[in-house]
Write a protein that binds this DNA or RNA. Structure first.
Lengths: 347, 347
DNA sequence: AAAGGAATTGGAAGCGCTTCCAATTTGTCC
DNA sequence: GGACAAATTGGAAGCGCTTCCAATTCCTTT
C-alpha cells in the first residue's frame, strides 16, 4: 500500500541531487563511475522505476512510435501476423511508457510517402516500424532515414539491412531447420511451395531449405519448387497440380501455414493419407496449424516478440539520443514444431 | 508543426480560469451552463485534446486497467479470442491515455482471489475486466465489487449482469440469426453442437437457435443437440458420430468455429460433399473460417470492439467518479457471415 | 604554483494538468 | 434591504520528471 518511490527518494538515498539521478537514468554523460554505481544501487534498493508519464511530460516528447503495415487486398485484414506484431509492440510500449500508433497504408497509394513523412513531421513520432513489404522498400526507407526518424524494419532484405536495423526470425536458418527435419524423416523427393515473388522471408526460407538439401548431397532433382502466393487458395491449387503428377513427391513444404492448410485439404480430397502418402509442413505456426488434420509441422515464428523487440530497439536508440539505428539484422529465436503432418514413415 | 493547444490556451480563448476548464472537462459540478457551453466551444474551436499523461500525473491515478483471462490447458495460449480482446482493450487504452495490465490466472489456482485483490490493492488499478469463465464467477465478481473496483465482465450470464456491467455480443440473437439463415437454406434436420457445460455464450447461442426453430413450428425432432467442448478435436469426434448415423442431419451447426472446422474435416473424410450433403456452420468468425474448405458460414463476433468498449465503459465511470458500473448488458453488433459451407441447396 | 579549462554536480524552472482553498458572485430569508 | 448560505470562479501548489544554467571540483598547462 506504500507509495512508489520517486526520483527524489533515490536522490536522497544515494546522497546526490535529483539532476544527477536523472543523468544516470538516462545514460547521460558527466557522471563519475563511482556515483553512477551508487545511484544504481539505490535504484535497486528502493526498487525504483521511473514514471514514464512524468518523463514524457517533462521531456516534451510525444513518446509516439508508428507501426506501419501494408493493406493488401489479398490478405485477410485481421491477419494473425499483423495482430501479433501490433500486440507485441503495444505491450512493449506499455512497459516503456511509450505509445503506439499503428496504421495501414496501401503499397499502391501514390501518397504513401507523404503519409509516412507526415507521421514524422506532424505527429512527431519518435520512431517508426515498417513491416513487410514496406520493410523492403528502399526508397521509403531512405525517406524516413533522411527525415531523421529512427527506423526499424521487420524481416528486411539485404539492401535495407545495410541502411538501418531489422528484426525478425532468421528465415534462412528456419528453412534449414525444416530441411533437416524433413530429411530426417527420410524424404528424398520434395516439393517446396514458395511465396509470392520478391517476398523476402519466403525467399530466405527456400534458400535455407535448399542449402540443407544440397549439403545432404541429394541428387539435383530431389527438390522441386513451385510458386505460390501465401494464400490458402494457392495452396489448394498448387497441391492439386503437384500431387496428381505421376512422380508425386513424398513431402510438400509450404512457405507459410495457410498454403500448407490448403495443401492438406487437397491431399485429403485426393484420398491421400498424411503423413504416410504425403508429408506436409508449413512456416509460422499460426493458430490454423492446430486446427487442421493432422496437426501441422511448422516453424514457430515469435511474432509478438519481434514486435516487442522493434519497440525496444527504438526506445534504446532514443534514450541514447541517436536518431538512427545501427544497421544490421537481429534474429529472434524460432522453434521447429514437429507435429503429426510429418511424422516419420521410418519409425 | 504547431504545438498542441494546452488547457491554458482554452482558458484564455474562453475567458475563464484554467481551473474552470478543468472542471468542464471532468464533468465537475458548479459550472454555469452558459460557461460550460462557452468552454466547450473553445475546446472545439482550438481542437483541444487533454494530455492524458499530464492528467494522470496531476491526478495521482495509475490509470491502470487490469484485464484478466483464464489460463486453460485445453485452450491454445495465443487464442484469437484473448489476443483480440487484449488488442482492442489496448487500443482503447492508448486512445484514453490509460494503461492495460493483462494477466492470465488459472481458474483452479487456490490463490486466484488473492491475486485479483492484489491487483486492486497493491497495483491500484482503477478498473478491471474479467473474461470468461471468470466473468461468470459470482464469488469473484462480489469480491472485486466489494473492493470498490469498477468491474466489467465480458459476456456474463444473468447473475453477474445483475451485479455489474457486461459487454459482449448478444449470443442469443446471434444464435437466432444463424437459425434463420439455416432454415432459409431449407434445412429441416439439424444438429447443434453445444459448447462445454456451463459456458454462457455457447448456451445462449443454442437458446437463440432453438427459439428460431420453435418459432418456425418445425417438429420437435428437427433439432438435435450434442455436447462438445469447443475444441477442434471434439468437433471431429462428435461429427464422426453424428454423420455416420442412419438419419444424418442436413445441417451441422457448431457453437464455435474450431468445432466447425473439425466437423468439416470429418465430413470430407466420410466423403460427404459440403454443403450439398451436409451444411456446416460455426460462430465467431476466427481466421480459420477462411482457411477451411469450403469457407465457413459463421457469425462474426467483434471481439476487438468488445475489448475496446470494456475499457471505454470503465473510463467513463471513473471520469464520473463512480466506483461501480451500472449493471446490465451492452450488446455489440454482430454480423452473419454467410459463406459457401451453407450455400443453399434450393437455388 | 597560479590560471585556465574541462568534467562533474546541483538549483530551479517548468511540462499540462488536478485540486485544495480562498475569493467572489448569486440567491434566499426575515 | 441586509445578513447569511450556497453556488460559482480563480489562485496557486504540486504530481515526477527533464533540462538549462550556474556552481563547484578536478586536471592540465605554462
Amino acid at each position: 500500500m506504500k507509495k512508489r518511490p520517486t526520483i527524489d527518494d533515490v536522490a536522497a538515498h544515494s546522497g546526490v541531487a535529483r539532476t544527477t539521478v536523472s543523468r544516470v537514468l538516462n545514460n547521460g554523460p558527466n557522471v563519475r563511475a563511482e556515483v553512477r554505481a551508487r545511484v544504481m544501487a539505490s535504484v535497486a534498493a528502493l526498487n525504483y522505476r521511473v514514471n514514464p508519464q512524468a518523463r514524457m511530460l517533462a521531456g516534451g516528447s510525444t513518446g509516439l512510435i508508428a507501426l506501419i503495415h501494408a493493406f493488401e487486398l489479398d490478405a485477410e485484414p485481421n491477419s494473425y501476423y499483423h495482430s501479433g506484431l501490433e500486440l507485441g509492440a503495444m505491450r512493449a510500449c506499455a512497459e516503456l511508457g511509450l505509445s503506439l500508433h499503428s496504421r495501414t497504408i496501401s503499397p499502391l497509394d501514390p501518397a504513401r510517402y507523404d503519409k509516412i513523412l507526415d507521421l514524422i513531421t506532424r505527429m512527431r513520432c519518435i520512431g517508426m516500424i515498417l513491416s513487410p513489404p514496406f520493410s523492403d522498400d528502399v526508397a521509403m526507407v531512405q525517406q524516413v532515414i533522411r527525415a531523421g526518424c529512427p527506423l526499424i524494419c521487420i524481416s528486411a532484405g539485404d539492401a535495407v539491412q545495410a541502411m538501418t536495423a531489422s528484426v525478425g526470425m532468421d528465415d534462412a536458418a528456419a528453412g534449414y531447420a525444416m530441411g533437416q527435419h524433413i530429411l530426417e524423416q527420410g524424404h528424398r523427393a520434395i516439393t517446396f511451395i514458395d511465396g509470392p515473388e520478391g517476398h523476402i522471408s519466403a525467399g530466405q526460407r527456400l534458400i535455407g531449405f535448399r542449402r540443407c538439401v544440397v549439403e545432404a548431397a541429394l541428387p539435383a532433382d530431389a527438390l522441386h519448387v513451385e510458386r505460390g502466393n501465401f494464400t490458402f487458395r494457392s495452396g489448394i491449387t498448387i497441391a492439386e497440380d503437384v500431387l496428381s503428377r505421376d512422380a508425386r513427391p513424398s513431402a510438400l513444404v509450404c512457405a507459410n501455414d495457410d498454403m500448407a492448410a490448403g495443401a492438406l485439404l487437397t491431399a485429403h480430397r485426393l484420398g491421400l493419407n498424411i503423413p504416410e502418402d504425403i508429408a506436409v509442413a508449413g512456416f509460422d505456426d499460426t493458430p490454423v496449424s492446430e486446427i487442421v488434420w493432422p496437426p501441422l509441422s511448422t516453424v514457430h515464428q515469435p511474432i509478438r516478440r519481434i514486435g516487442a523487440r522493434a519497440v525496444e530497439r527504438i526506445a534504446e536508440a532514443v534514450n541514447r539520443g541517436r536518431d538512427t539505428l545501427e544497421p544490421g539484422f537481429e534474429a529472434i529465436a524460432f522453434h521447429l514444431m514437429a507435429r503429426a503432418s510429418t511424422a516419420s514413415k521410418l519409425h
